[in-house]
Nucleic acid binder design. Structure first.
Length: 480
RNA sequence: GGCGACGUAGCCAAGUGGUUAAGGCAGGGGUCUGCAAAACCCCCACCAUCGGUUCGAGUCCGAUCGUCGCCUCCA
């Protein structure tokens, strides 16, 4: 296994080598918790979840940090997002942040996104931010102006190395607003002076105020991961200015490099358009879950590469749902037949099949986390398994276990799309017994050639979500 | 206007110079079945357009057309 990652900083795929052998330190920009998470959040955190899972699968000990932005994300109007949300919902700012933080985690749990090892809150790190800003002021990379502190972009040579943007270009942009107290329009806020009515405020060497958005990621990532650290992830839309500013602050303050590998994921589109409140196509995860199983959404997301944009249409998600069901069908069949399989160790044929499937899966994942390729490997494995399954008695219990374990490892542990309860026996005991009774009754009806009644039974069960499949060894069923 | 991505079958989507262009969905034809469903087998792509580099290009270069992102808040 040799993992290559597309490093946005270098603009090329590079062999991944962690700073410390066997360990990976990874940071991803988290959400600003002023509203419910939407499908775009879903794509982003599933994309990065896959990286964490695969790195762990490879044997790395991963320390994954993802912040919670609960202060400092400022709107055009100069208003803080959290403060604005708090007024909208008539809550205290911290109450609002806590409320949406909990909902964020709940939404991500349903998508089977593993929780980060550390979820630092920006408000809990204001002291560290102040220290960091002070260091920048002390070494001349930042200046104080009327109670606010700004980063002096002209004093940082490398500004623009991530986004490819140059100073002159930024200056020529017509929409950059010139704040009165900035020396230059592209300078960005490290610390903002709080107006008298501003609720979220901390005292600092420059007076009462609150931190800017960019500084929190620099401070919280390096605090827990060191500097430099291995991987920094985020959405492409934040490449500039957010990530560019993070680099500037981090490297200007310490003289050390910041993140070694930058990974950016592509955006989610709704029917060809960016999801935006103003476009009226803003879909929260909660609402999407009413229409689709979260596993289906996760699978849909993974069927495209993380770096590309993903256009979401109902048709495409429905197609993904049917594909996922196909995979589940194989896993169900294996688990169902395990009990009746002849005892025995795994055959060399199955061992070879499992080995080549695993290799093919890993080859795709090693290539910059190519999940569509990895999924294709699973479908191939699924087909090969189904062929073996067609001849009852071909597979021994050992074979079944090898197959089941591989699905569990690849589709379950790495891709996170395999629920543990894929067994028909997971229905409540009474339901199970009733279904078995109806199946037996139907068997007798069929034997008596009372097909009309038998079909009526089957249709009735189907309407209740119980699908029957007649096979050579009797009738099996799934519930869903 | 500046910077940057991308255009692959009806739909979704891999593929970064080399035999027959993955995989899924949909569709067509079979096998199996009392009939279905599932499963299995077979079929379904002149890789946006034009030009160039090369023995050889979906893959590299240029132009054109189109879509999208960033430059202002975004995951």
């Amino acid at each position: 296994m040799a993992l290559s990652i597309y490093n946005s900083l270098a603009r090329e795929k590079q062999l991944f080598e962690p700073l410390h052998p066997g360990r990976v330190h990874m940071y991803v920009c988290g959400p600003t918790v002023y509203n419910d998470a939407h499908l775009g959040h879903g794509k982003t955190y599933v994309n990065f979840d896959i990286m964490v899972r695969y790195l762990r699968y490879m044997g790395y000990q991963v320390l994954y940090v993802q912040n919670i932005t609960d202060v400092g994300h400022i709107l055009d109007s100069g208003e803080d997002r959290i403060v604005q949300g708090a007024r909208r919902e008539q809550m205290q700012p911290m109450q609002l942040a806590e409320h949406y933080t909990r909902r964020y985690f709940a939404d991500m749990d349903r998508l089977n996104v593993l929780r980060p090892d550390i979820s630092p809150r920006a408000t809990g790190h204001v002291h560290e931010m102040i220290d960091w800003i002070q260091a920048l002021v002390d070494n001349g990379h930042a200046y104080v102006s009327d109670g606010s502190v700004y980063f002096d972009v002209s004093r940082f040579e490398d500004y623009g190395k991530l986004s490819g943007r140059r100073l002159e270009e930024a200056q020529s942009g017509t929409r950059v607003q010139q704040a009165e107290d900035k020396h230059s329009p592209e300078d960005f806020a490290l610390w903002k002076k709080a107006d008298p009515e501003h609720v979220m405020r901390w005292s600092s060497p420059w007076g009462e105020g609150y931190p800017g958005w960019h500084i929190e990621c620099t401070v919280m990532s390096t605090k827990y991961l060191g500097q430099p650290f291995d991987i920094h992830g985020g959405g492409v839309e934040n490449k500039f200015p957010h990530h560019e500013c993070e680099i500037a602050q981090a490297e200007a303050a310490t003289g050390l490099p910041f993140a070694r590998y930058w990974v950016h994921n592509g955006m989610l589109m709704i029917r060809g358009e960016e999801m935006h409140k103003s476009l009226g196509n803003f879909i929260t995860l909660e609402r999407a879950y009413e229409r689709w199983d979260p596993m289906v959404l996760r699978f849909f997301i993974l069927q495209s590469h993380y770096r590309g944009p993903l256009d979401m249409t109902e048709e495409a998600v429905d197609a993904a749902a049917r594909g996922l069901e196909r995979l589940y069908g194989t896993v169900r069949a294996v688990r169902r037949q395990l009990a009746s399989a002849p005892e025995g160790a795994a055959s060399s044929e199955v061992a070879r099949l499992a080995e080549s499937s695993r290799a093919s899966f890993e080859a795709s994942m090693d290539d910059d986390f190519n999940t569509p390729g990895a999924i294709a490997a699973l479908f191939d494995f699924s087909r090969a398994t189904n062929v073996l399954l067609q001849e009852p008695g071909t597979l021994t219990s050992g074979d079944m276990e090898v197959i089941d374990r591989l699905f569990g490892r690849l589709a379950g542990d790495v891709l996170g799309v395999l629920p543990d309860q894929l067994r028909e026996s997971d229905a409540p005991e009474l339901s199970r017994q009733l279904i078995e009774l109806l199946i037996e009754t139907r068997r007798e009806l069929r034997q008596a050639r009372a097909y009309e009644l038998a079909d009526k039974l089957r249709d009735g069960l189907s309407a209740l979500g119980v699908q029957l499949q007649d096979g050579p060894q009797g009738t099996s069923w799934t519930i869903g």
